[in-house]
């Protein structure tokens, strides 16, 4: 028996979640997932394969991608076992060493940073920790445009803020989110087992 999941017009990671739900329901031998963009088809393929299924083909029809999945009867068990985990890669530490993102325009950099932090709040797979250093600490103090986003993120992850840097900028009593940290803790985190992404 065949089942069809229509993931067209859905934002990432919805097509993957719908595929997961369909695979959990089971009761078919072949699942066809329709999505309207290539990255989504690849995400669905990766998810299905990670769960032990076989993707027999990806057909391109009228600008859509049809991912054909042959299911494995053991899959349902596997998914049940892994239920709390969504297929997120190992969570990273993000080291933010400036209040602006990238080099070039100060104005653009500040907006990109704010917009990046907002986007993190929307991600299914969030990083594990944010470490703020040098002017990066300015993001976490009263009056910061990015404060609301960091406060939302703090519900899911740890925010470490360089105490020396707060002191240098005279912002020690203005810290509004995260916990004050020191070079020892920061260095341990950067050299520890987790992957670090530096901005």
């Amino acid at each position: 028996m065949k089942k069809i999941v229509d993931g067209r017009g859905l934002a990432c990671p919805q097509p993957v979640i719908r595929t997961k739900n369909a695979l959990e329901e089971g009761k078919f031998s072949e699942l066809e997932v329709i999505v309207d963009n290539k990255p989504a088809s690849q995400n669905v393929q990766r998810f299905a394969e990670n769960m032990g299924n076989t993707v027999t083909e990806i057909l391109q029809k009228a600008g859509n991608y049809h991912v054909i999945i042959k299911t494995d009867s053991k899959v349902v068990e596997k998914i049940e076992k892994n239920k709390p985990k969504i297929s997120c890669p190992d969570a990273k530490i993000i080291f933010i060493s400036s209040n602006i993102l990238g080099k070039g325009s100060q104005e653009l950099g500040a907006l990109l940073m704010k917009s990046f932090l907002y986007t993190l709040t929307q991600l299914q797979c969030k990083p594990k920790k944010l470490i703020l250093m040098n002017s990066g600490v300015k993001l976490a103090v009263q009056g910061s445009e990015a404060l609301a986003n960091l406060q939302t993120l703090q519900k899911d992850l740890q925010i470490l803020v360089c105490g020396t840097c707060l002191d240098y900028f005279g912002l020690k009593d203005k810290l509004a989110v995260g916990s004050v940290s020191n070079m020892y803790e920061i260095a341990e985190n950067l050299t520890g087992p987790d992957k670090v992404l530096t901005l």
Binding site: A11, C12, L111, K114, S115, Y118, T119
Partner: peptide, 13 residues
């Protein structure tokens, strides 16, 4: 309008 709006990346859809 910055007190009333949030700047975000344009949604994918």
């Amino acid at each position: 309008l910055h007190r009333f709006v949030e700047i975000i990346p344009t949604p994918r859809q």
